[in-house]
């Protein structure tokens, strides 16, 4: 399809981007990797008059090791998440999940921040942010603020980022030693979106699960924490049976949609099956 006409500004600093957004009024959009925005424009689902490009802002393209967390710039590409040694070592769940996103061409352009700000319920990276209790650094004309993951994802394609704000970075806590990670993405073709996804980080000590962080992709309007499964697992044995039993509640309280790939009922079933698989893999069994 063919988008409507728009103006384009490439910002070199966060302040410049915010200033352009404020000056641009109601009809302005941020573009980062463009892998979600450009399709939206081409289908004429959105008609912005101005587009502010944040993909070349240095601050937003860097990863900073803060000790107990990594501060990952919003414009860091999905491909970089897979290949960065710090991400691999300290947040393996993120690196592993990033490798399941789309295909290499899209991963080289699409960004971590773009994916979170877009907040497609089928997006894989937001689920990791939700599972790991990430924090989002947002800049606006009044300065910067930090929002927790549970408050960041508001609804379908809706986040805490205001229309004249920029998502600058995502702070992802390191879990430390003893944690295993796994992302189960259930999809029909290698480059398709998730029908359902399950991100799990699990800590085991002496055959007992002592910690679990589990979040689900595409089981509702936003990425959803499977807290009842986390509770049921914690303190229990790391066995296939126990994990299966705990995962039976994975779909409780979720609100999956129905589409051409799966009806809601099937999605709920898949969420239970893949929660058990992700937890088992993360626990090393």
């Amino acid at each position: 399809m063919i988008p409507s006409a728009f103006d384009y500004v490439r910002a070199t600093t966060v302040d410049e981007a915010v200033a352009a957004l404020v000056a641009g009024g109601d009809d302005v959009k941020v573009i980062s990797g463009g892998q979600s925005l450009i399709p939206v424009l081409r289908l004429r689902l959105s008609h912005p008059s101005l587009i502010v490009d944040v993909s070349k802002i240095d601050e937003m393209r860097t990863i900073v090791d803060e000790g107990s967390s990594l501060l990952i710039g919003a414009a860091v590409t999905t491909d970089a998440l897979i290949k960065d040694a710090r991400v691999q070592a300290d947040v393996p769940l993120l690196a592993m999940t990033a490798a399941t996103v789309a295909d290499p061409a899209i991963r080289h352009r699409g960004t971590f921040g773009g994916s979170c700000a877009h907040a497609d319920p089928a997006g894989d990276l937001p689920t990791v942010a939700q599972a790991l209790d990430a924090e989002f650094v947002i800049a606006g004309s009044g300065g910067r603020r930090t929002v927790a993951a549970r408050d960041f994802f508001v609804d379908y394609f809706t986040t805490a980022v205001g229309p004249d704000e920029v998502l600058v970075a995502v702070r992802v806590p390191k879990l430390g030693a003893g944690w295993g990670a796994n992302y189960q993405k259930f999809q029909r073709t290698a480059q398709a979106w998730a029908i359902v996804g399950v991100a799990a980080s699990v800590k085991t000590e002496g055959g007992i699960i002592t910690g679990a962080r589990i979040a689900l992709t595409n089981m509702g309007a936003t990425p959803i924490r499977a807290s009842s499964v986390e509770t049921a697992l914690t303190g229990g044995p790391a066995t296939t049976e126990a994990i299966k039993a705990a995962s039976a509640s994975a779909a409780d309280g979720t609100r999956p949609t129905s589409d051409t790939h799966a009806q809601a009922e099937f999605r709920s079933h898949l969420a239970r099956v893949h929660t058990a698989r992700a937890v088992a893999k993360a626990a090393g069994i």
């Binding site: 029909r188 480059q191 398709a192 790939h261």
Partner: peptide
């Protein structure tokens, strides 16, 4: 290709109409 009861093509993009690639 799937249609709804009103005759709307539900699989009108490659996100819904799945073509395999060599990876599949």
């Amino acid at each position: 290709a799937l249609y709804d009861n009103e005759g709307n093509l539900l699989t009108a993009s490659m996100g819904d109409y799945l073509l395999p690639s060599s990876a599949d």
